[in-house]
Design a protein around this nucleic acid. Sequence first.
DNA 1: CTCTTTGCTACATTTAATGTAGCAACACGC
DNA 2: GCGTGTTGCTACATTAAATGTAGCAAAGAG
Lengths: 108, 108
Amino acid sequence: MPKQGLVTKPGVRGSRSGRPIMALLDLLGRRWTLRILWELRDGALTSRALRTACDEASPTILQTRLTELREAGFVELTEDGYGLTALGRELFATFTPLNRFAERWSKR
Amino acid sequence: MPKQGLVTKPGVRGSRSGRPIMALLDLLGRRWTLRILWELRDGALTSRALRTACDEASPTILQTRLTELREAGFVELTEDGYGLTALGRELFATFTPLNRFAERWSKR
DNA sequence: CTCTTTGCTACATTTAATGTAGCAACACGC
DNA sequence: GCGTGTTGCTACATTAAATGTAGCAAAGAG
């Protein structure tokens, strides 16, 4: 039984109230999703290179997340490997300040 | 066996390379974490109210996440219920643009 | 044809989340 | 005092997700 809202897009659980932020938070809140977007920030990576960057995460889950991110339009598979789309880079830019915040947070 | 890095703070898996962003992404990447921060944006909620806001997520996992967020210093329990700390509001502010992005994303 | 790398999948094991129930502590009236 | 309700939180069995290891088919290089 699906929780966390009803299905609004293929593979993306979203809010019943039509709040896209819920669908986005759900997608980003899945394990490795944020990390993948983060690791692709400087350019495309092959699936193997991405796996190495993600601390040897299991290929099963990476493949699952990559498929979700591709369906969401954030990631695409090019001849250089997996890379962020224009939309994906836009998304990444919205939480770029997170890096600076993390530095300050770690010093608390 | 813990993956996704070594333990740097209690309950927060982080990067071995001392990159706090990894610890933060790991924490934020756990189910319901982003959602909880989002639901607390307008003020404190009691545990029950938060549960309702989070679409009746199980109290077990909410409690787990709240404990993690409290240890991380983002959430505190006041007499009004659970609320964001100053640090938590700061964190929230860093991904506020996400809301506008989500709106545009849903119209793609 | 061999060797390597790519994207991707199978599958058994382990871990995390869910759903339901309920407890102890505290406040309200009465 | 006694009930009634709410709060924060926990137990525990069931279900879903992630992990770890292995390996396949396709494409390219030599």
